[in-house]
Amino acid sequence: MTENILEVKNLVKRFDEKVVHRDISFFLKTGETIGLLGNSGTGKSVLLRSLIGLEQIEGGEILFHQQRIDHLSEQQLYPIRTKISYSFQNAALFDSISVYENIAYPLFEHSRLTEDEIKVKVRNILKTVNLEQAIDLMPSDLSGGMQKRVGLARSMVLSPEIMLYDEPTAGLDPVNIEMVLDIMNRFKKQGLSGILVTHDIPAAKKICDRILILKDGMIGFTGTVEEFENSKDPFVQSFLGQ
């Protein structure tokens, strides 16, 4: 039986008086990708950020390989963040350094590879996102789609166990969407687990094994893609209509 690589139990998140998540519980199995849907402002990205401690939670538990990580200090979370990687909506590339330096950054920080070995590794990861030719360019020289692919490459370069995708297809043209989805599918086939936050229902259906929908600070729906598509619940159907 596949183990739960990540588990969230009764998570509570508030911003001052505003309760974003009142009771969120779900799990992610090894090799599985789940889609996290919800209307704007329901806290999808906040939930994703909370999973790796970029946001402090006010209650509940987050378990990675059955070990609690929600109470860890920032310092203790650093090694966890090399195993649970985050792909930002806007790619969040370091704009003062080149594509090579962006992708090499985590390798210089966390690996004992030589500079030559790092160069080879960066070239290889860029090949997987079809951007080998962009290695010496600056982020400002790249289109939005290319930036997202570089961001994916940077998140993948340490070979994480889980990838958190924050709206990877938002703002992209259909060609770039297909490219990004293709890359995500390849990562999935390599055994990478993932959580995809998106408004892009076709993308979620294409990539995900299960769908979770946030509603009123809780999980309003959870089920397989098939159950999602066949649901008679008007709330779920409102997403299918998008």
Partner: peptide
């Protein structure tokens, strides 16, 4: 200005998310 711009474009979060301080 530099750190502020990095903050609003989530580059600071990216540094943290990549396991660095």
């Amino acid at each position: 200005a530099e750190i502020g711009a990095m903050n609003v474009t989530q580059q600071i979060d990216a540094i943290r998310a990549l396991g660095t301080n």
